[in-house]
Design a protein around this nucleic acid. Structure first.
Lengths: 204, 204
DNA sequence: ACCTGAACACCGTTCAAGT
DNA sequence: ACCTGAACACCGTTCAAGT
């Protein structure tokens, strides 16, 4: 749905373009200006600086997660948290290049407060809530880190196969690592994510 | 131990200077060259590009953690892992500005293999090992993210007090968050880190 | 208020030329 | 092999001037 330079421009339209550029591997003020049909300097009418754009983008992405999953009264709390964690991981992995921004800005924005509150509904102990958030964001950060900045995200099974093929260690030096090669290749799998989350939740 | 331009320069000396610049909040090839008494172009004799310097730096930092803590046969596995996790957190928090690089490159370097192998000694199930690593790196990433890029890291109690003072949410909209303000301010505390880790380990 | 055009003070990287 | 000097192709941000 490319539209070229907009007739009437608003901050949301600028963010749309910024996200596309970030996904494509390079968000610069100059590229962003060109994308929305503006001169670089004109962007400063909409945002004070580049950092503000990145923060707004992070908050918007976090907002795409479905916090309603946490508040579904018909399901067990652990079930709700698992559903939300899987959903959040999926949402964030649609834009892996934005993950560093999420980590850098996640809990300052208005949407972060909404996520935190909903999490406390399902998991009233704040220490437990934060531990879950640490796990989810940590797992996604490590998963996103090994993706090419540019280009679409390959299917999970392809990424695992690529990890397995590329994996080599000296069996003499690292025997346990060598023996665990299959499991290590699958570190980024949904199954691993779910396994760790289940372990964690079972003690919270 | 400032020495100015070196007589004989090696890659390690370049990395020393690079780490200082990263801690100071800005690692650029030009600043790095000036720091070691070189012209920017000369750096490409030591490293192929800036990314290679960052990766080497990340691996070096990870190497400062004491993997021996994981292999101490006299102590319980969970005790060893706790000691190592606290040590790794401490080591990484000495250079918070390098944390994005750690996340971005942590498991490609040679030192990462050593850490992984040692972790498998204390925690033989690779899925469990990875879950611990996700927790530690996730917690440190979130803690490091809210620090100023430049300048030294303030003491933990000061950082918690600052978080508490800055914390405000609408009690009507976010009642649980409002009630948990003290615990939320302490999310970055050693106590919270230890609490989450203990919960996690108790089920692994 | 919104935007242009032009400038300022930077970047990373390359490369002929020197030693 | 190591390094300089100079250039190339970029950056983010500011600001007078226009509408």
């Amino acid at each position: 749905m490319k539209r070229g330079p907009q007739r009437s421009l608003n901050p949301e339209a600028v963010l749309d373009a910024a996200l596309e550029l970030m996904d494509a591997g390079g968000l610069t003020m100059r590229a962003l200006a060109a994308r929305v049909g503006l001169t670089p300097g004109a962007l400063y009418t909409y945002f004070p600086d580049r950092a503000a754009i990145v923060v707004a983008l992070a908050d918007r992405l976090l907002g795409e997660a479905d916090v309603g999953l946490l508040e579904d009264g018909d399901r067990e709390p652990h079930e709700r948290i698992t559903a939300f964690a899987l959903n959040l991981r999926q949402v964030l992995m649609r834009h892996p290049a934005a993950m560093p921004s999420i980590l850098g800005a996640a809990f300052s924005g208005p949407v972060a407060a909404r996520v935190g509150e909903s999490l406390l509904i399902a998991l009233p102990d704040p220490r437990a809530s934060y531990t879950v958030m640490v796990y989810v964001l940590g797992a996604v950060a490590l998963e996103a880190a090994e993706l090419d900045a540019a280009g679409p995200v390959p299917p999970e099974d392809e990424r695992i196969a690529a990890r397995r093929a590329a994996f080599t260690v000296d069996p003499a030096l690292f025997p346990r690592t060598h023996a665990a090669a299959d499991a290590i290749a699958a570190y980024i799998s949904t199954e691993q994510f779910r396994w760790g989350l289940e372990r964690l939740l079972s003690s919270l």
